[in-house]
Amino acid sequence: MKIFRNPDVMWREEDEYKEQAYKGLEQGEDVEDIGTSVLYSGGEMLSLNVLGTEIWKRCDGKTIDEIASELVAIFDVESEALKNDTAGFVNELKGKGYLYEE
């Protein structure tokens, strides 16, 4: 199944936080709590950390496997774990109506 962003959802990357997160990643720090993008819909805001942001950006018609395989080049994590993380993320945001499958 291909994953798409709901076009009603507005979003942007947060440049300053993104820089901070990538610096932290380089130094082996835990950057899970740094929001590097925001999604905004219906008056509600969601903030995504660096992994969530990179998955979100790739939800443009790719499958979960395709997204996970691209992320291997960015994150020092085993591909199976990335696939699980991607599937979990997609499921959660599908539930909120932010993503859909075709």
Binding site: G35, Y40, M45, S47, N49
Partner: peptide
């Protein structure tokens, strides 16, 4: 994410 997250600028005006 932490609840005190503040975006770098307003999302809407």
């Amino acid at each position: 994410m932490k609840n005190d997250f503040l975006p770098g600028s307003p999302l809407t005006i």
